[in-house]
Design a protein around this nucleic acid. Structure first.
Lengths: 198, 198
DNA sequence: AACTGCGTTCGACGAACGCGCAACGCGTTT
DNA sequence: AAACGCGTTGCGCGTTCGTCGAACGCAGTT
Protein backbone atom coordinates (compact mmCIF):
# COMPACT_ATOMS: atom_id res chain seq x y z
CA UNK A 1 0.00 0.00 0.00
CA UNK A 2 1.44 3.33 -1.05
CA UNK A 3 -0.03 5.82 1.37
CA UNK A 4 -2.88 5.32 3.77
CA UNK A 5 -5.78 7.52 2.76
CA UNK A 6 -7.72 8.71 5.80
CA UNK A 7 -11.26 10.06 5.81
CA UNK A 8 -11.56 12.50 8.72
CA UNK A 9 -14.87 13.16 10.42
CA UNK A 10 -15.83 15.16 13.53
CA UNK A 11 -18.86 16.78 15.09
CA UNK A 12 -17.18 20.18 15.21
CA UNK A 13 -14.77 21.89 12.81
CA UNK A 14 -12.12 22.44 15.45
CA UNK A 15 -11.70 18.76 16.13
CA UNK A 16 -11.88 18.04 12.42
CA UNK A 17 -8.91 20.24 11.55
CA UNK A 18 -7.12 18.91 14.62
CA UNK A 19 -7.43 15.35 13.37
CA UNK A 20 -6.48 16.40 9.87
CA UNK A 21 -3.34 18.09 11.19
CA UNK A 22 -2.32 14.93 12.96
CA UNK A 23 -2.76 12.83 9.84
CA UNK A 24 -1.06 15.30 7.53
CA UNK A 25 1.96 15.28 9.84
CA UNK A 26 2.35 11.55 9.22
CA UNK A 27 4.63 10.75 6.26
CA UNK A 28 2.70 7.64 5.30
CA UNK A 29 -0.77 9.13 5.40
CA UNK A 30 -2.91 11.70 3.67
CA UNK A 31 -6.32 13.22 4.26
CA UNK A 32 -9.00 12.63 1.65
CA UNK A 33 -11.53 15.41 1.02
CA UNK A 34 -14.79 15.02 2.88
CA UNK A 35 -16.65 14.78 -0.45
CA UNK A 36 -14.81 11.61 -1.41
CA UNK A 37 -15.15 9.12 1.46
CA UNK A 38 -15.13 6.27 -1.05
CA UNK A 39 -11.50 7.07 -1.93
CA UNK A 40 -10.29 6.38 1.62
CA UNK A 41 -8.80 3.33 3.30
CA UNK A 42 -9.73 4.26 6.85
CA UNK A 43 -12.20 6.55 8.61
CA UNK A 44 -11.06 8.51 11.65
CA UNK A 45 -13.65 10.17 13.87
CA UNK A 46 -13.76 11.98 17.18
CA UNK A 47 -16.67 12.48 19.59
CA UNK A 48 -17.33 13.40 23.18
CA UNK A 49 -19.12 10.15 23.82
CA UNK A 50 -20.12 7.14 21.81
CA UNK A 51 -23.87 7.49 22.14
CA UNK A 52 -26.76 6.08 20.16
CA UNK A 53 -26.90 9.29 18.16
CA UNK A 54 -23.24 9.13 17.29
CA UNK A 55 -23.50 5.51 16.18
CA UNK A 56 -26.52 6.39 14.12
CA UNK A 57 -24.54 8.99 12.22
CA UNK A 58 -21.71 6.53 11.87
CA UNK A 59 -24.03 3.90 10.45
CA UNK A 60 -25.36 6.33 7.89
CA UNK A 61 -21.85 7.26 6.86
CA UNK A 62 -20.91 3.59 6.64
CA UNK A 63 -23.71 2.95 4.15
CA UNK A 64 -22.20 5.50 1.78
CA UNK A 65 -18.71 4.07 2.08
CA UNK A 66 -18.02 1.17 4.44
CA UNK A 67 -14.59 1.80 5.95
CA UNK A 68 -12.75 0.41 8.94
CA UNK A 69 -13.15 3.16 11.53
CA UNK A 70 -11.00 4.52 14.34
CA UNK A 71 -12.82 6.46 17.06
CA UNK A 72 -11.23 8.91 19.49
CA UNK A 73 -13.51 9.45 22.45
CA UNK A 74 -13.60 9.83 26.19
CA UNK A 75 -16.59 7.66 26.84
CA UNK A 76 -18.46 4.70 25.42
CA UNK A 77 -22.02 4.13 26.53
CA UNK A 78 -22.01 0.52 27.78
CA UNK A 79 -25.23 -0.25 25.95
CA UNK A 80 -23.70 0.91 22.67
CA UNK A 81 -20.62 -1.28 22.92
CA UNK A 82 -22.21 -4.28 21.15
CA UNK A 83 -23.17 -2.09 18.18
CA UNK A 84 -19.64 -0.91 17.52
CA UNK A 85 -18.59 -3.73 15.24
CA UNK A 86 -21.68 -3.27 13.08
CA UNK A 87 -20.41 0.21 12.29
CA UNK A 88 -17.02 -1.22 11.38
CA UNK A 89 -15.31 0.38 14.36
CA UNK A 90 -11.99 -1.39 14.81
CA UNK A 91 -10.19 0.83 17.34
CA UNK A 92 -11.04 3.05 20.31
CA UNK A 93 -8.62 5.71 21.53
CA UNK A 94 -8.73 8.05 24.51
CA UNK A 95 -9.52 11.48 23.11
CA UNK A 96 -8.06 13.40 26.00
CA UNK A 97 -4.76 11.52 25.71
CA UNK A 98 -4.56 11.08 21.96
CA UNK A 99 -0.90 11.37 21.03
CA UNK A 100 0.37 11.54 17.52
CA UNK A 101 1.88 8.09 17.73
CA UNK A 102 -1.19 6.44 19.21
CA UNK A 103 -3.41 7.92 16.52
CA UNK A 104 -0.99 6.96 13.79
CA UNK A 105 -0.51 3.38 14.89
CA UNK A 106 -4.24 2.86 15.37
CA UNK A 107 -4.99 4.21 11.91
CA UNK A 108 -2.23 2.10 10.40
CA UNK A 109 -3.46 -1.06 12.06
CA UNK A 110 -7.00 -0.32 10.95
CA UNK A 111 -5.83 0.20 7.37
CA UNK A 112 -3.87 -3.04 7.26
CA UNK A 113 -6.59 -4.93 9.07
CA UNK A 114 -4.09 -6.30 11.56
CA UNK A 115 -4.02 -6.80 15.31
CA UNK A 116 -7.72 -6.33 15.97
CA UNK A 117 -8.13 -6.40 19.72
CA UNK A 118 -11.59 -7.16 21.06
CA UNK A 119 -13.71 -4.03 21.03
CA UNK A 120 -15.17 -4.82 24.41
CA UNK A 121 -11.66 -5.06 25.78
CA UNK A 122 -10.73 -1.76 24.18
CA UNK A 123 -13.83 -0.13 25.65
CA UNK A 124 -12.87 -1.44 29.07
CA UNK A 125 -9.32 -0.16 28.69
CA UNK A 126 -10.73 3.20 27.66
CA UNK A 127 -12.98 3.41 30.68
CA UNK A 128 -10.07 2.51 32.94
CA UNK A 129 -7.73 4.99 31.33
CA UNK A 130 -10.22 7.87 31.34
CA UNK A 131 -12.02 7.42 34.60
CA UNK A 132 -9.00 6.17 36.47
CA UNK A 133 -9.43 3.70 39.31
CA UNK A 134 -12.53 5.55 40.58
CA UNK A 135 -14.84 4.20 37.90
CA UNK A 136 -15.13 0.86 39.62
CA UNK A 137 -16.11 2.48 42.88
CA UNK A 138 -19.86 1.82 42.72
CA UNK A 139 -21.41 -1.16 44.42
CA UNK A 140 -23.94 -3.19 42.38
CA UNK A 141 -26.81 -2.12 44.63
CA UNK A 142 -25.95 1.53 44.18
CA UNK A 143 -25.94 1.04 40.43
CA UNK A 144 -29.37 -0.57 40.54
CA UNK A 145 -30.80 2.19 42.69
CA UNK A 146 -29.36 4.86 40.42
CA UNK A 147 -30.82 3.21 37.34
CA UNK A 148 -34.24 2.82 38.92
CA UNK A 149 -34.25 6.44 40.05
CA UNK A 150 -33.26 7.55 36.56
CA UNK A 151 -36.29 5.64 35.28
CA UNK A 152 -38.59 7.65 37.53
CA UNK A 153 -39.14 5.26 40.44
CA UNK A 154 -39.43 6.64 43.96
CA UNK A 155 -38.13 5.09 47.14
CA UNK A 156 -40.96 2.63 47.97
CA UNK A 157 -41.08 1.41 44.38
CA UNK A 158 -37.35 0.77 44.41
CA UNK A 159 -37.68 -1.00 47.76
CA UNK A 160 -40.35 -3.22 46.29
CA UNK A 161 -38.33 -4.04 43.18
CA UNK A 162 -35.18 -4.73 45.18
CA UNK A 163 -37.09 -6.62 47.85
CA UNK A 164 -35.93 -4.58 50.80
CA UNK A 165 -37.26 -1.79 53.00
CA UNK A 166 -37.53 1.90 52.13
CA UNK A 167 -34.94 2.66 54.77
CA UNK A 168 -32.46 0.43 53.07
CA UNK A 169 -32.95 2.18 49.76
CA UNK A 170 -32.43 5.52 51.43
CA UNK A 171 -29.31 4.23 53.12
CA UNK A 172 -27.85 3.14 49.83
CA UNK A 173 -28.58 6.52 48.32
CA UNK A 174 -27.16 8.29 51.36
CA UNK A 175 -23.92 6.36 51.31
CA UNK A 176 -23.54 6.94 47.59
CA UNK A 177 -24.21 10.66 47.80
CA UNK A 178 -21.72 11.04 50.64
CA UNK A 179 -19.06 8.99 48.94
CA UNK A 180 -19.33 10.85 45.65
CA UNK A 181 -19.78 14.16 47.44
CA UNK A 182 -22.98 15.13 45.66
CA UNK A 183 -25.85 17.10 47.17
CA UNK A 184 -28.90 14.92 46.61
CA UNK A 185 -30.33 12.07 44.57
CA UNK A 186 -30.98 14.21 41.52
CA UNK A 187 -27.37 15.29 41.51
CA UNK A 188 -26.22 11.70 41.95
CA UNK A 189 -28.29 10.47 39.02
CA UNK A 190 -27.11 13.34 36.83
CA UNK A 191 -23.47 12.68 37.65
CA UNK A 192 -23.80 8.96 37.04
CA UNK A 193 -25.52 9.66 33.74
CA UNK A 194 -22.87 12.12 32.64
CA UNK A 195 -20.09 9.77 33.70
CA UNK A 196 -21.74 7.04 31.67
CA UNK A 197 -22.04 4.73 34.64
CA UNK A 198 -25.71 4.17 33.94
CA UNK B 1 -0.27 45.96 16.96
CA UNK B 2 2.04 43.86 14.82
CA UNK B 3 0.67 40.36 15.07
CA UNK B 4 -1.83 39.04 17.56
CA UNK B 5 -0.17 36.42 19.75
CA UNK B 6 -2.65 33.72 20.75
CA UNK B 7 -2.28 31.31 23.63
CA UNK B 8 -4.14 28.11 22.74
CA UNK B 9 -5.56 25.80 25.37
CA UNK B 10 -7.79 22.71 25.18
CA UNK B 11 -8.78 19.72 27.25
CA UNK B 12 -7.60 17.27 24.63
CA UNK B 13 -4.70 17.36 22.17
CA UNK B 14 -6.90 16.97 19.11
CA UNK B 15 -8.83 20.15 19.80
CA UNK B 16 -5.61 21.91 20.74
CA UNK B 17 -3.94 21.30 17.40
CA UNK B 18 -7.24 22.10 15.70
CA UNK B 19 -7.33 25.53 17.28
CA UNK B 20 -3.66 26.06 16.59
CA UNK B 21 -4.19 25.25 12.92
CA UNK B 22 -6.95 27.80 12.67
CA UNK B 23 -4.80 30.51 14.22
CA UNK B 24 -1.73 29.67 12.18
CA UNK B 25 -3.80 29.99 9.03
CA UNK B 26 -4.56 33.60 9.90
CA UNK B 27 -2.00 36.05 8.47
CA UNK B 28 -2.26 38.45 11.37
CA UNK B 29 -1.94 35.87 14.16
CA UNK B 30 0.54 33.44 15.60
CA UNK B 31 0.42 30.74 18.26
CA UNK B 32 2.58 31.18 21.33
CA UNK B 33 4.07 28.05 22.92
CA UNK B 34 2.10 26.66 25.83
CA UNK B 35 5.06 27.30 28.12
CA UNK B 36 4.89 31.05 27.56
CA UNK B 37 1.33 32.20 28.24
CA UNK B 38 2.65 35.53 29.48
CA UNK B 39 3.87 36.35 25.97
CA UNK B 40 0.35 36.24 24.51
CA UNK B 41 -2.25 38.89 23.80
CA UNK B 42 -5.27 36.62 23.88
CA UNK B 43 -6.16 33.18 25.22
CA UNK B 44 -8.27 30.85 23.08
CA UNK B 45 -9.82 27.76 24.67
CA UNK B 46 -12.28 25.07 23.72
CA UNK B 47 -14.42 22.84 25.93
CA UNK B 48 -17.47 20.61 25.72
CA UNK B 49 -19.27 22.63 28.33
CA UNK B 50 -18.52 25.61 30.51
CA UNK B 51 -18.82 23.94 33.88
CA UNK B 52 -17.54 24.84 37.31
CA UNK B 53 -14.55 22.60 36.73
CA UNK B 54 -13.68 24.28 33.49
CA UNK B 55 -13.94 27.74 35.00
CA UNK B 56 -11.77 26.62 37.88
CA UNK B 57 -9.03 25.60 35.50
CA UNK B 58 -9.49 28.86 33.64
CA UNK B 59 -9.17 30.85 36.85
CA UNK B 60 -5.97 29.07 37.72
CA UNK B 61 -4.58 29.79 34.28
CA UNK B 62 -5.65 33.43 34.58
CA UNK B 63 -3.65 33.83 37.78
CA UNK B 64 -0.49 32.84 35.94
CA UNK B 65 -1.14 35.19 33.05
CA UNK B 66 -4.36 37.26 32.96
CA UNK B 67 -5.44 37.39 29.32
CA UNK B 68 -8.68 38.28 27.59
CA UNK B 69 -10.13 34.90 26.73
CA UNK B 70 -12.21 33.52 23.88
CA UNK B 71 -14.11 30.29 24.57
CA UNK B 72 -15.45 27.90 21.96
CA UNK B 73 -18.09 25.65 23.49
CA UNK B 74 -21.44 24.04 22.91
CA UNK B 75 -22.92 24.66 26.31
CA UNK B 76 -22.72 27.15 29.17
CA UNK B 77 -24.05 26.13 32.58
CA UNK B 78 -26.43 28.97 33.51
CA UNK B 79 -25.05 29.28 37.01
CA UNK B 80 -21.55 29.74 35.64
CA UNK B 81 -22.52 32.62 33.39
CA UNK B 82 -21.98 35.30 36.07
CA UNK B 83 -18.47 33.96 36.74
CA UNK B 84 -17.35 34.32 33.17
CA UNK B 85 -16.20 37.91 33.38
CA UNK B 86 -14.11 37.15 36.47
CA UNK B 87 -12.09 34.74 34.34
CA UNK B 88 -11.67 37.48 31.74
CA UNK B 89 -13.83 35.68 29.20
CA UNK B 90 -14.80 38.22 26.56
CA UNK B 91 -16.31 36.07 23.83
CA UNK B 92 -18.31 32.85 23.49
CA UNK B 93 -18.44 30.93 20.22
CA UNK B 94 -20.37 27.87 19.14
CA UNK B 95 -17.87 25.04 19.01
CA UNK B 96 -19.85 22.92 16.59
CA UNK B 97 -20.14 25.82 14.15
CA UNK B 98 -16.79 27.51 14.64
CA UNK B 99 -15.73 28.79 11.27
CA UNK B 100 -12.34 30.24 10.53
CA UNK B 101 -13.72 33.74 10.16
CA UNK B 102 -15.77 33.63 13.35
CA UNK B 103 -12.81 32.44 15.36
CA UNK B 104 -10.53 35.01 13.80
CA UNK B 105 -12.82 37.97 14.32
CA UNK B 106 -13.57 36.97 17.91
CA UNK B 107 -9.88 36.66 18.70
CA UNK B 108 -9.14 39.96 16.99
CA UNK B 109 -11.87 41.77 18.90
CA UNK B 110 -10.67 40.26 22.14
CA UNK B 111 -7.11 41.37 21.42
CA UNK B 112 -8.11 44.93 20.62
CA UNK B 113 -10.59 45.06 23.45
CA UNK B 114 -13.33 46.29 21.15
CA UNK B 115 -17.01 45.54 20.70
CA UNK B 116 -17.62 43.65 23.91
CA UNK B 117 -21.13 42.30 23.73
CA UNK B 118 -22.79 41.33 27.00
CA UNK B 119 -21.67 37.87 28.03
CA UNK B 120 -25.17 36.92 29.13
CA UNK B 121 -26.42 37.88 25.69
CA UNK B 122 -23.67 35.84 24.04
CA UNK B 123 -24.57 32.85 26.22
CA UNK B 124 -28.20 33.17 25.16
CA UNK B 125 -27.26 33.39 21.49
CA UNK B 126 -25.10 30.34 21.96
CA UNK B 127 -27.91 28.34 23.48
CA UNK B 128 -30.23 29.36 20.67
CA UNK B 129 -27.72 28.56 17.96
CA UNK B 130 -26.75 25.17 19.37
CA UNK B 131 -30.11 23.80 20.36
CA UNK B 132 -31.72 24.83 17.08
CA UNK B 133 -35.48 24.60 16.66
CA UNK B 134 -35.66 21.34 18.62
CA UNK B 135 -34.71 23.11 21.79
CA UNK B 136 -37.99 24.92 21.49
CA UNK B 137 -39.63 21.81 22.91
CA UNK B 138 -38.56 23.08 26.31
CA UNK B 139 -39.11 26.59 27.49
CA UNK B 140 -35.90 28.43 28.43
CA UNK B 141 -36.87 28.51 32.10
CA UNK B 142 -37.50 24.76 32.12
CA UNK B 143 -34.09 24.20 30.62
CA UNK B 144 -32.47 26.36 33.28
CA UNK B 145 -34.29 24.60 36.08
CA UNK B 146 -33.34 21.20 34.75
CA UNK B 147 -29.70 22.16 34.45
CA UNK B 148 -29.61 23.57 37.95
CA UNK B 149 -31.27 20.45 39.36
CA UNK B 150 -28.75 18.30 37.51
CA UNK B 151 -26.02 20.26 39.25
CA UNK B 152 -27.42 19.38 42.65
CA UNK B 153 -29.40 22.47 43.58
CA UNK B 154 -32.68 22.18 45.47
CA UNK B 155 -35.78 24.32 45.01
CA UNK B 156 -34.91 27.35 47.18
CA UNK B 157 -31.42 27.54 45.70
CA UNK B 158 -32.85 27.52 42.18
CA UNK B 159 -35.38 30.16 43.16
CA UNK B 160 -32.54 32.32 44.44
CA UNK B 161 -30.45 31.88 41.30
CA UNK B 162 -33.37 32.54 38.99
CA UNK B 163 -34.63 35.41 41.12
CA UNK B 164 -38.15 34.10 41.63
CA UNK B 165 -40.13 32.32 44.32
CA UNK B 166 -39.94 28.65 45.29
CA UNK B 167 -43.52 28.24 44.08
CA UNK B 168 -42.55 29.40 40.63
CA UNK B 169 -39.72 26.89 40.46
CA UNK B 170 -42.07 24.13 41.51
CA UNK B 171 -44.62 25.30 38.95
CA UNK B 172 -42.02 25.10 36.21
CA UNK B 173 -40.99 21.61 37.28
CA UNK B 174 -44.60 20.52 37.58
CA UNK B 175 -45.54 21.75 34.13
CA UNK B 176 -42.45 20.12 32.63
CA UNK B 177 -43.04 16.77 34.30
CA UNK B 178 -46.68 16.78 33.17
CA UNK B 179 -45.83 17.78 29.62
CA UNK B 180 -43.14 15.15 29.22
CA UNK B 181 -45.16 12.58 31.11
CA UNK B 182 -42.42 11.75 33.61
CA UNK B 183 -42.94 10.78 37.23
CA UNK B 184 -40.81 13.24 39.18
CA UNK B 185 -37.90 15.66 38.98
CA UNK B 186 -35.27 12.93 39.01
CA UNK B 187 -36.92 11.30 36.03
CA UNK B 188 -37.17 14.63 34.24
CA UNK B 189 -33.49 15.39 34.70
CA UNK B 190 -32.48 11.90 33.61
CA UNK B 191 -34.60 12.11 30.45
CA UNK B 192 -33.27 15.55 29.56
CA UNK B 193 -29.73 14.34 30.11
CA UNK B 194 -30.23 11.25 27.98
CA UNK B 195 -31.85 13.30 25.24
CA UNK B 196 -28.84 15.60 25.27
CA UNK B 197 -30.97 18.64 26.01
CA UNK B 198 -28.81 19.56 28.95
C1' DA C 1 -13.54 -15.73 73.54
C1' DA C 2 -13.57 -10.84 73.68
C1' DC C 3 -12.53 -6.71 70.83
C1' DT C 4 -12.80 -3.95 66.87
C1' DG C 5 -14.04 -2.25 62.46
C1' DC C 6 -17.29 -2.26 58.59
C1' DG C 7 -21.43 -2.98 56.07
C1' DT C 8 -26.46 -3.66 56.61
C1' DT C 9 -30.97 -2.74 58.58
C1' DC C 10 -34.37 -0.22 60.99
C1' DG C 11 -36.76 3.92 63.70
C1' DA C 12 -37.71 8.67 63.89
C1' DC C 13 -37.89 13.66 62.83
C1' DG C 14 -37.25 17.97 60.38
C1' DA C 15 -36.94 19.60 55.69
C1' DA C 16 -38.19 19.32 51.06
C1' DC C 17 -41.18 17.73 47.42
C1' DG C 18 -45.78 16.87 44.62
C1' DC C 19 -49.87 19.07 43.79
C1' DG C 20 -54.41 21.16 43.94
C1' DC C 21 -56.84 25.66 44.73
C1' DA C 22 -57.19 30.66 44.73
C1' DA C 23 -55.70 35.26 43.65
C1' DC C 24 -53.23 39.04 41.37
C1' DG C 25 -51.20 41.60 37.39
C1' DC C 26 -51.00 42.17 32.41
C1' DG C 27 -51.64 41.92 27.68
C1' DT C 28 -55.14 40.37 24.06
C1' DT C 29 -59.60 39.67 22.36
C1' DT C 30 -64.66 40.94 21.57
C1' DA D 1 -65.33 47.93 29.74
C1' DA D 2 -65.80 43.15 30.21
C1' DA D 3 -63.98 38.61 29.30
C1' DC D 4 -60.31 35.68 28.65
C1' DG D 5 -55.78 33.47 28.75
C1' DC D 6 -51.31 33.19 30.82
C1' DG D 7 -47.59 33.69 33.86
C1' DT D 8 -46.65 34.38 38.67
C1' DT D 9 -47.15 33.88 43.65
C1' DG D 10 -49.14 32.40 47.72
C1' DC D 11 -51.39 28.89 51.07
C1' DG D 12 -51.98 24.33 52.71
C1' DC D 13 -51.98 19.33 52.72
C1' DG D 14 -50.23 14.78 52.49
C1' DT D 15 -46.20 12.39 50.91
C1' DT D 16 -41.47 11.72 50.22
C1' DC D 17 -36.70 12.80 51.04
C1' DG D 18 -32.30 13.70 53.81
C1' DT D 19 -30.04 12.45 57.77
C1' DC D 20 -28.77 11.17 62.47
C1' DG D 21 -28.48 7.43 65.72
C1' DA D 22 -28.62 2.78 67.17
C1' DA D 23 -28.76 -2.11 66.79
C1' DC D 24 -27.29 -6.33 64.37
C1' DG D 25 -24.34 -9.65 61.84
C1' DC D 26 -19.80 -10.84 60.23
C1' DA D 27 -14.88 -10.62 58.95
C1' DG D 28 -10.14 -10.19 61.01
C1' DT D 29 -7.18 -9.16 65.35
C1' DT D 30 -5.11 -9.92 69.77
Amino acid sequence: MARVRVFVQAGDPISAVGLASYIRAQPGMLVVPSRLPADADVALTVTDRVSADFLGALTKAAQAAPLPTVVATDHVDPEQAPSLHRCRVVALLPRSAATSSRLASAVMEAATGGAVTSLAEQADNLRREIAGPDGAMLAPRELTVLQLMADGHDTPEIADIMACSDRMVKSIILSATKRFNVHNRVHAVACALRAGLI
